[in-house]
Design a protein around this nucleic acid. Structure first.
Lengths: 233, 233
DNA sequence: AAGGATATGTGATGGCCGTCACTTAAATTT
DNA sequence: AAATTTAAGTGACGGCCATCACATATCCTT
């Protein structure tokens, strides 16, 4: 087991000198989580910030009805839990290990002290929060103006990356379980399946194992604007 | 005309000394907007921060389909436009004067300088952003797990304040146009009207001019959990 | 007081999609 | 390889609510 007890790989701390890092590391608690283990519970009173050294984490929330809503997937090198550390309020969502994860926990008070001493870090946090607000805003827009099927398209476009080999071909790799896509765009597994089926039929999508190939990205993009409210103008 | 050219009343600057305030004021541009005048356009490249001295401002966004989505209402003493100033990206939404407004504009560069010099201000901004993220998250949850009618209920509960005279009575005052409520919870004017009608019929709501009385707040709260996914347990 | 703009109540209609119910296919375990 | 769990397609059905269409009502202006 690697046990890389170093915060050097954490993006937020990229510019910190060795000494400060050492001090921070000394003040952290270190924990390992199994896949699917719950790291943090919605509404709880804990205030630590979490830094992911290995693995990745899902930020989710389940509505009164039991429906799961996914907020983000945080990868190694990144952090989560800053909100409560910043404003002192209960956790706004739950966190679950998406895979075995190794994590450093820093007390809110320590985090504050760090922010006071190192403006660079504070600015990075500011930037991060700004991105979160933006991401939330586009999600709200999508939920408000796009139909479920179109939101699935939008999510496909977000996930796809240009294929290394063929030019103009895009890939989603690995394709997550449909249930998860559903929870990201707030619909059901079945609706996602039907949306994909339709795209297979249209020849826009092709699947090979855990790889999903996007044959004509531009055409799919077109599907977003169209079909929803095409006023002839 | 009052022309209160002072930033002293701005919450963000509450703790600043007179000297710093003077310097800031000297660097601001000052502008007056008529009601419904557009202050700032989605996607635009401007990077100023706006401080509202008089009046109030709607932050909105209109989807491709033409549907209006309301994000926030900013009151005098508060600010908007920080996102772009912080991350340098295009504006994430538009701003429209909700009533005649008097506003101070500060260049992003000046804003940055301020943040570097006065950590207290930076922390306030951090806090604000955290609240924004939280607000976005609950909105996403509502859009994902509540039906349109229930979202209207939720918005009513948010708007209502305890009545000064009668104990246990709550008031929404003034009741905004239904179209606006609709745009806050992402539904249509008609659906809001129908939801209210139902509540009038149930005796939960009573209207007098621009005042809307909430006769039984607890019962309405109950409507949120119920009806949507009541699994008999 | 009249007239126009804006706001509100309500019916009718139809499509989207959430829910239920299975079947089939993969993936994982024993 | 068989068995068990998990994932993925797909049909049927029905309810919610967006849309269209009017009928008031209320507010604001002149």
């Amino acid at each position: 087991m690697t046990e890389t007890k170093s915060l050097a790989q954490i993006e937020l701390f990229a510019d910190l000198d060795r000494e400060t890092l050492d001090r921070l590391e000394a003040r952290c608690r270190w924990r390992r989580y199994k896949a699917n283990e719950r790291i943090l519970e919605y509404g709880s009173e804990a205030r630590e910030v979490f830094f992911i050294l290995e693995g990745s984490v899902h930020i989710v929330n389940t509505g009164l009805t039991g429906r799961e809503v996914a907020f983000a997937r945080i990868l190694a090198g990144d952090c989560f839990g800053e909100l409560s550390a910043i404003d002192g309020k209960p956790r706004s969502a739950s966190a679950v290990a998406a895979e075995p994860a190794y994590v450093a926990l820093l007390q809110a008070a320590e985090f504050h002290r760090l922010l006071e001493e190192r403006v660079e870090v504070t600015f990075k946090v500011l930037f991060r929060l700004a991105q979160m607000v933006r991401a939330g805003d586009v999600r709200i827009m999508e939920l408000s103006t796009l139909a479920a099927t179109q939101r699935v398209y939008a999510e496909l476009l977000r996930m796809a990356q240009p294929d290394a080999a063929v030019d103009g071909l895009w890939v989603v790799r690995p394709l997550p379980p449909l249930r998860e896509i559903a929870s990201r765009v707030s619909t059901t597994r079945e609706t996602v399946a039907r949306a994909l089926s339709q795209l297979y039929a249209d020849g826009l999508l092709r699947r090979k194992g855990r790889n999903l190939y996007l044959m004509d990205r531009d055409k799919l993009t077109g599907f977003l604007a169209a079909s929803s409210g095409s006023k002839a103008t």
